[in-house]
Amino acid sequence: MSRWLLALLLHAAAAASAEPPSYHVMMLLYRGCEEACRGFQDHFGRQQVRARFTLRDADQDARRIPGFVAEARRLRPDLVVAWGTTVALETVGQWDAVDRSRHIADIPVVFMAVSDPLQSRLVPTLAGSGRNLAGTLYLLPVAEQLRAARAYLDFRRIGFLYNPAEANSLNSLQDLRAQASHFGFSLVVETLPIGANGQPSAGDIPGRIAALAAAGVDLLYFSPDSFLNSQRRLVTGEALARQMPVFAAAEAPVTQADALLGVLNRYDQIGRFTARLALRILREGAPPGELPIELPRQFSYLINLRVAHRLGRYPPLPLLDIAEIVGGPACTRTKGKACD
């Protein structure tokens, strides 16, 4: 009997050591597999970790998410990745209001691209969630953003488009107000009226920006707001037409619109940083509830050179050392194109 047991154990050990485990990771996404999602998977590849990724995309329709969550509870992957606040809340619920019939409570879940885990009550404290949830931050503190902006240009009056329909917007407004005296600027706020559908209207934007320009604003702060982001071309275009530089706290307004500069974590970085966290849970068995929720250590300084030309406001020489230039002439870092 013992000999048989021994043989079985040896066999199991041999099988286990023969090839490394393959993890099943399920990714619940909101707007497709964008840079963060790709960066996440690429990190696994670089670390040579075998993993099977199941992707489910809500395609900006929140009603699809509960179905994905139910599927996850059925499939029982090793890890669930939740992209964004909406998805995360549907997946695990607020920390003090977990519904075990709807939410996942016994599979490790990792969130990323959540702008404020505290505000949205995903976690009670950034020191750790205390449950099966870990995650990463991606928004830089406003103070750091302002400091970085000052390295480019001086400002005395910051303009802000307030969107009452999003909690994000209120947070940004409060943060900016808190920093105003320390950084020596005054804040000019224009509120976007909310329509019958509970959302602001794009048509109101040009008027508000015109009002900011009339108030002598020398920098427009583009907060990480979904509605504004969806209207980034309009917002930044109007500002540029009035020679108003735009500082963006998210990537797209700089890389895909006319914001002058942005100091932020690029989605690719966020994806990789989150993947590192995920590997700690998977490979080292770190308990998710005890892992602190942190920012990646380095951030990107993005400068849209085309806009700089239009404004005639160029980045100082020291910034050229660290900045990532987007929209520049002929000089890109994408594959296949050489510079110089």
């Binding site: 050179l305 910034l319 230039i325 520049g328 510079c339």
Partner: peptide, 14 residues
Amino acid sequence: ALEIPLDKLPGVTD
């Protein structure tokens, strides 16, 4: 190369 005119480039003295 980025077509920044050198006379408009700030921060050189620093």
